[in-house]
């Protein structure tokens, strides 16, 4: 009984052993003289830095970044999803013709677009939201269009044959069939948006995690840089966790596939 409990705990903790070992190494390596503590401050030093900045300030930066990416991505979803349904559902010919232009536009790196957006609209929140929106928009649009095209036409024919009205057809057949693909697009898009968020804040923010990191860099506060990296990783994980939760909740009828990349 006891043995089983231990082995079970071992199994559950297995995921974290390496991480814990590395964190311990991080803590003790500077003190042991393995790395220069100037460049790699111990974990406790980084934690102390967070204390010195006051935890409220730190959390405020995290919250600002989180709220930004959430807002930016909501705008992007509100634009991309209706457009996808419109293009793939109502005008498949037009969407085919627009394909090349769209893939051209999607390849413009949002990061180098940022200065232009600042030129047009001035810096600040709006510019950051625009690039977040831009980088999330394309993957979401493409996967959604793909998903709509891949809806089994037999399902639609069947439903039509049984006399389903268009609204019911959309709600009961098309939407559930498209949802797994949309959620995949949401995951990719949100990852892209989060990637660009830190970059945009580095370039032209006044707050948020990205600004915190670049500001620490300018002032040569090395522990603060590491703190920012930890926070960025944590926020990335949080976003991923939220999306996975939503996906599991929404896409009940189909087992959720684990995505490997990005």
């Amino acid at each position: 009984m006891m043995g089983r409990l231990v082995s079970r705990a071992n199994g559950a903790l297995m995921h974290f052993y390496l991480l814990i070992a590395l964190l311990l190494l991080w803590q003790f390596a500077p003190a042991l003289g393995l790395v220069n503590p100037m460049f790699v401050p111990a974990l406790s030093t980084v934690a102390r830095e967070a204390g010195a900045m006051t935890p409220q300030t730190v959390l405020l930066h995290v919250w600002i970044s989180f709220w930004r990416v959430l807002r930016g991505f909501s705008i992007c979803a509100a634009l991309a999803l209706p457009l996808a349904f419109l293009m793939a559902g109502a005008a498949p010919k037009a969407s085919g013709a627009l394909g090349m232009l769209m893939s051209f536009l999607s390849q413009i790196p949002a990061y180098i677009l940022y200065p232009i957006i600042v030129l047009l609209w001035g810096s600040g929140d709006r510019a950051i939201l625009t690039v977040i929106c831009w980088s999330g928009f394309w993957p979401l649009l493409f996967t959604a269009i793909q998903g709509i095209r891949d809806v089994d036409p037999k399902l639609i024919l069947c439903a039509r044959a049984m006399g389903t009205n268009p609204i019911l057809l959309f709600g009961k057949i098309i939407l559930p069939a498209v949802f797994p693909n949309i959620m995949r697009g949401v995951r990719i898009g949100l990852t892209n948006s989060f990637l660009i968020l830190i970059g945009a804040e580095t370039m032209g923010g006044e707050n948020g995690i990205g600004w915190m990191i670049s500001n620490a860099q300018r002032m040569a506060k090395i522990p603060r840089i590491y703190l920012g990296v930890i926070l960025a990783a944590a926020l990335g994980f949080l976003l991923n966790f939220i999306v996975a939760r939503v996906e599991r909740r929404v896409v009940r009828w189909k087992p959720v596939t684990e995505d490997l990349n990005i």
């Binding site: 990637l195 830190i198 580095t202 995690i209 990205g210 620490a216 960025a232 990783a233 994980f237 991923n240």
Partner: peptide, 10 residues
């Protein structure tokens, strides 16, 4: 999952 932008300063 660690944002590459955050890694640049390090």
């Amino acid at each position: 999952k660690i944002n590459p932008f955050a890694v640049i300063p390090v």
